[in-house]
Structures are given as structure tokens and as C-alpha cells.
Design a protein around this nucleic acid. Structure first.
Lengths: 256, 256
DNA sequence: GCTTGACCTTGCCGCAGCGTCAGGGTTTCT
DNA sequence: AGAAACCCTGACGCTGCGGCAAGGTCAAGC
């Protein structure tokens, strides 16, 4: 047999057969006078074994190991390992499929969130927030929430979003005040007012994992994110939020 | 934020972030004076979107497509395609897992076949054949059967193995005769006897997809395999089998 | 005898999504 | 001042082949 024939027989491509030669899985057979490879039955049998093993999902080097190994002992071992591997893969794919179909349902029913697929908690939170008038600050806030959605681990998420739920009701009061500060300096007189209103509608517990005030200072799990958040705002806005944080913290410590 | 920070925040490696830059998924941010990349909130949000999409199983170019696409329309499309893809993958993995676990059961319970995992039909056939005394011809036959197991399409297999089942009962008569011919010339007198016995225990239907006689002649789906099979035998053996085939064919046509 | 088409040969690049050096520089802590 | 922990660019590696280039060979048809 020539290479095309044995390949068709076993159901692989000639290229694959040559690849197996090159990687030492299948020994090179004798050549005809013209340089063509001439395959016999033994080669076909071996090639068939290789194909059966690869079809099961073994890698080529695992196949090599199984073939080299004298009969059996190693094979069970490898197969068990492979079974675990496949189980893992299947579970992984299934979770992805579930998440995906949930997402598709949501996308086809309502409309999908602008920043891509989000957790259900956040989706419902944003749904409540979505009816507010246009506001640059609100847009930024939504982005930040989307970020938190990824950053915060799953078990924390429900708690955190629950805290936000309360604040969301007062959003229509707070966002305009903050928007008004977009061009203002850090010592603008409206900063104090905005901070007071903001602090009033934030729950005490929120202060726990918030930065203490000065940029770069410890107190949060990652200060770099906080720094970046504040850097993204106008000076007066970031001043107002810093101040609000301090008010919340003082309120919590005072009421303790 | 520096690259390590944003990467840790979103849960990817810095290398992945740089890779996204390189492939145009995530725009390169401004640099600090020392050449370090400086990331802001917008970058983190984008990176989080990218990660969510890739975690769903999208390829990077699909992600790029979704991001480039102005909101939504293309996304549902891509997601649906992906859902199909995942369904296919899961089914594929599940079949492999099933075959594998069947194999593992068999391997742990009895002993696993020497030529690797085989179809259940062939396995049972070989089980019946396995109790014969040692015979070089039998060994070759087993290899050939293993080969047929791969070559023959699934729907044919049961039928073919059924045919063989009848022949297997007479194996203890035939193999010794053929083994005795291993060193003989093609015109050995024992050839005719062996052919007669062999033909007697082969069913009529077997002749249908067998070669007509002369090497290289048409009449089988792949003559090259038949040629190789005969080339693998001693001259007297191949002569005996050729003759047996002719006898079977004549018998079938005579009795028709 | 010549062409055509279907084979065969070797060799090398490409793929996805990064991991992992190598060979530098910077900042920061001690 | 030295070490640890970052950052930079650039390049190769991995899996299992697919595909192409640039030929050589063989059987059949004109």
C-alpha cells in the first residue's frame, strides 16, 4: 500500500500519517525504488491502534507512551487520567453552556446590558437604575459597578449588591449634585453639600472596604483600583466622594 | 494602575493583557515616564468585558467582532453560533467519555485486548477465538480482524462479525492446515486440501466483497488492502486462500 | 510520443492563546 | 547598597496537523 491508501483505509489523512512518522509513533516503512513508502498490514494495524487512541482523546505523546509500554499496565492508568480530564472538560463546557443560554434568554427577551454579560444581581440593580435621566456620573457609576461585578468574588456579590440597592433609591438626588461638580475646583462650596447628601444615602457598612481618604493609603484590598477610580473623576467630584466616605466612617464609629 | 494591578484585578495574567494589546482587542494606554503602561478605569472595564466573553468560550477575533459591532445585533448572532458549537463539543466529549468508561470497565474486569480498544462485536468474537492453541496464522487473523474493525463502517460491522461467528467454530480445523503451509511453495499438494476445508466453513455471503483472485484485480472496495494482506502471507498460504475464495464464489454462483 | 491528472516526496509556515524564558531597566524596601 | 518585586521588548514553544511550494513518478488517453 502507498500512503494515500493506508490513510484512506484507516480514515486519516496522508499528512497525519507522515506526522506520526515524524513524531515517532509509527515507524517509517520500507521504501519502493521510487522513494514511495510501502506499507504492509502491520503498519495498518498499528495505525489503526493509534487512531483509536487519539479518537479517545489521548495526546500523541500519551499514545506513544501506551504503545511503548509493554502491554496494559500503563494503559489503564492513562485512561483513568483521561477520564478525569474529560469529566472536567465536560463539566466546564456545561457550565459555560448554562451561563450562555441564560444570557441568550435574557438578550432575546429584554435587551442585553451595554457592557456585556453581567451577573444577575447586578443586572437587576441596573434595571432599577436605568430609568434615571441621562447623567455622566451615572454612566461612570454603571461602569464601575460592572467592574465590581468582575472584581468581587461571587459570595460577596449578593451582599454588596444588596447594600447598593438601598443607595439606588436616592440616586436621583445624588447624581445631579455630582454632575454639577464636573468642572468645579476641589474647594468649591458645593462639595460639602454633595458629600452630605451622598453620605446620607449610603449604608454604614459600606465603609468597611473603602479607602480611608488619601490616595495610595492602605485600607482597601486594592488601593490601585481606588486611585484609578478617583483619578477618573473631576477634582471636586473626587473630593466630594472622599468627604462622603469620611462622613460615613465617622458616623459608623460614632454610632458604635 | 500598572499592568500587574489591572491584570490581578480582572483575573488574568499580564501576559494576556499584553497579548490583547498586540491583537488589537484592548487599546494601548498611555505610558508613564519610565515606559510603564498606565491603566485607567475605562481599560479595566473593557478588559473585564473581554474576559467575560472569552470565558464564555469566544475566540479573540469573535470578541473583537462583538466589541467593534455597535451594540448588540451581532452579539446574539455570535452567541447562538457559540451555543451550537458548545452543544456539539459537549456531545462529542460525552460519547468519548462513554466509550472510555466502557473500555475502562472492560479493562479492569477482564483483560484488555492486545491491539487496543476494539468494538464490542469484535471483542466477543475474539473472546471465542481466544482459547485456541498458539498459532501464527491465528495471530495474523486477529490482527486482520482488528483492522477490519476500523475499516468497516459501523452499520456493516454487526453483519460481518455475524458471518465470522460461524467460521470461528471451525477455526481449530483450519488454522493448523494453514500454519503447516508457512514454508511451503505455492504448488504444494496440501494447498488444495486446506482450501477445501477453509471454503467449507466460510459462508456463501462472504464472497461478495472479496477479491476475485489475481492480485491487483478489481472486485473489492480496496484492492490495495487485499494485496497487502496476501503479501503478508507465505506463497502457499495465500494460494490456499485464493483458491478457497474461488471455491466459495463458485459454490455461491452454482447454488443460485 | 506526449500530455494530463493523480499520486508521491521533502520542507517550511501557520493556527489559538497565551506560557516562558532572556536580557535588560525601575522602584522600593531594608 | 543590595535584594525583591515589578516593568519593558522580543522571541520561541506548545498541539495536531492543514496547506503550500517545488518538484518526481506513474498509468491512462490522445
Amino acid at each position: 500500500m502507498r500512503i494515500g491508501e493506508i490513510a484512506a483505509l484507516v480514515g486519516v489523512t496522508p499528512r497525519a500519517v507522515r506526522h506520526y512518522h515524524q513524531s515517532g509513533l509509527l515507524p517509517e516503512p520500507a521504501r519502493r525504488a521510487n522513494g514511495y513508502r510501502e506499507y504492509g498490514v502491520r503498519d495498518a494495524v498499528l495505525l489503526a491502534r493509534i487512531r483509536r487512541l487519539t479518537e479517545l482523546g489521548l495526546g500523541l505523546d500519551e499514545v506513544r507512551g501506551v504503545l511503548a509500554d509493554d502491554e496494559g499496565r500503563g494503559l489503564v492508568e492513562v485512561l483513568e487520567e483521561l477520564a478525569e480530564d474529560l469529566a472536567r472538560q465536560e463539566a466546564e463546557i456545561r457550565t459555560r453552556r448554562e451561563r450562555l443560554s441564560a444570557l441568550l434568554d435574557e438578550a432575546r427577551a429584554g435587551r442585553l446590558p451595554a457592557d456585556g454579560p453581567l451577573s444577575p444581581e447586578l443586572t437587576s440593580l441596573l434595571a432599577g437604575l436605568g430609568e434615571l435621566p441621562e447623567s455622566p456620573m451615572a454612566a461612570k457609576d454603571r461602569q464601575i459597578l460592572a467592574l465590581m461585578d468582575v472584581v468581587v468574588p461571587e459570595e460577596e456579590r449578593a451582599r454588596l449588591m444588596g447594600l447598593m440597592e438601598g443607595a439606588a433609591e436616592h440616586a436621583h438626588e445624588v447624581y445631579p449634585l455630582l454632575d454639577a461638580l464636573s468642572g468645579a475646583a476641589a474647594d468649591d462650596p458645593r462639595v460639602a453639600e454633595a458629600a452630605r447628601v451622598l453620605a446620607d444615602c449610603l449604608p454604614d457598612e459600606l465603609g468597611v472596604n473603602m479607602p480611608t481618604g488619601a490616595p495610595g493609603e492602605a485600607g482597601s484590598s486594592d488601593t490601585s483600583l481606588a486611585d484609578a477610580l478617583f483619578a477618573d473623576l473631576a477634582p471636586a467630584q473626587s473630593a466630594a466622594i472622599h468627604l462622603a466616605m469620611r462622613l460615613v466612617r465617622e458616623r459608623r464609629e460614632g454610632g458604635r
